[in-house]
């Protein structure tokens, strides 16, 4: 049975940084070349010369090794006027692409890994929140997530309880909506786009669409890079490297509800590239 993940869209380059010489990279173990061919045009080709479908969205170039049955997922907020779109850049991580997404969906690690920024002891409790798999959209959603944060964003001055929503629209992509300190009632959008190089190696391309008129663009980039780099040593030291779809060697609790829903959704769709099927 071929993995249906082959038909999904994946980020393979930052559009603003892609030139005519392009870049050689890997997608699910296959060497590919991505290069700019015009002011708004990009070509992606496999090693044998086969050209791959391309989309340019959310600051990134997207392609697929298979035949995508669905258009690249929509992030409506990306087109809202007044938002600042932030290309955060790429970071390579020696872990399963699925583990990178799962970690992004996790809040319980904030006090220990993002200490004094996204969380701090003694505020470690994860309160009940809602998780659902939206059938029409075929996406995982976690809503009514709340967590106390000493410095939730670059624009946050002090500690506040931050509201979150998480969305998984594709097996290696996640969109996070969080309270936007300068504009109560609006949500900042922070995404994690993951390029699966192999089942145990990935390139992570964070991207943001923020309401923040004050902060310097570089500050915004640095803040998000700082957060993600605090996670990197965790991701590279989880055993096994692949994401277990059988939790027999783990102990998920209610705080891991989003992780469980994400893994269930992967399992239902047979999205197993980067997954470990049997607990060992």
């Amino acid at each position: 049975m071929s993995d249906p993940m082959i038909d999904e869209w994946y980020p393979v380059a930052l559009f603003s940084k892609l030139d005519a010489a392009g870049r050689d990279t890997l997608l699910m173990g296959h060497p590919i070349h991505v290069a700019r061919t015009g002011s708004e045009r990009v070509a992606a080709t496999e090693a044998d010369g086969r050209s791959l479908p391309v989309r340019i969205r959310y600051g990134h170039v997207w392609t697929s090794l298979g035949e995508p049955k669905k258009e690249l997922f929509d992030i409506p907020e990306a087109d809202e006027p007044g938002r600042r779109l932030v290309d955060v850049g790429v970071v390579r991580v020696r872990c399963s692409p699925l583990r990178a997404v799962e970690n992004f969906l996790d809040i319980a690690h904030f006090p220990f890994v993002h200490t004094d920024i996204l969380g701090a002891e003694p505020h470690t409790e994860v309160e009940k929140y809602d998780v659902e798999i939206r059938e029409k959209e075929d996406e995982v959603w976690a809503t009514k997530v709340k967590f106390f944060q000493p410095q939730a964003a670059k624009s946050a001055a002090g500690g506040i309880t931050t509201d979150y929503m998480y969305r998984v629209p594709a097996p290696t992509c996640s969109v996070l909506y969080k309270t936007c300190p300068p504009r109560p009632g609006e949500w900042d959008v922070i995404t994690l786009f993951v390029q699966p190089l192999t089942e145990e190696l990935c390139d992570v391309w964070p991207w943001m669409a923020l309401y923040d008129d004050e902060a310097d663009m570089t500050d915004l980039i640095h803040f998000q890079q700082m957060i993600f780099l605090q996670d990197r040593s965790i991701l590279e030291n989880q055993i096994p490297r692949r994401l277990p779809l059988d939790p027999g060697m783990e102990i998920p609790t209610r705080a891991d509800m989003t992780s469980v829903a994400y893994r269930r959704w992967l399992k239902r769709h047979n999205y197993t590239y980067g997954a470990q099927l049997v607990a060992q």
Binding site: L245, D246, P247, G248, E250, I251, P252, T253, R254, D256, M257, V260, R263, R264, K267, R268, L277, V278, A279
Partner: peptide, 18 residues
């Protein structure tokens, strides 16, 4: 909280069960 954890584990379960 542990019954919740049991529910979490079983929702995913072994690979040959849905």
């Amino acid at each position: 909280a542990l019954i919740d954890a049991m529910e979490m584990g079983c929702l995913l379960g072994p690979i040959d069960v849905w």
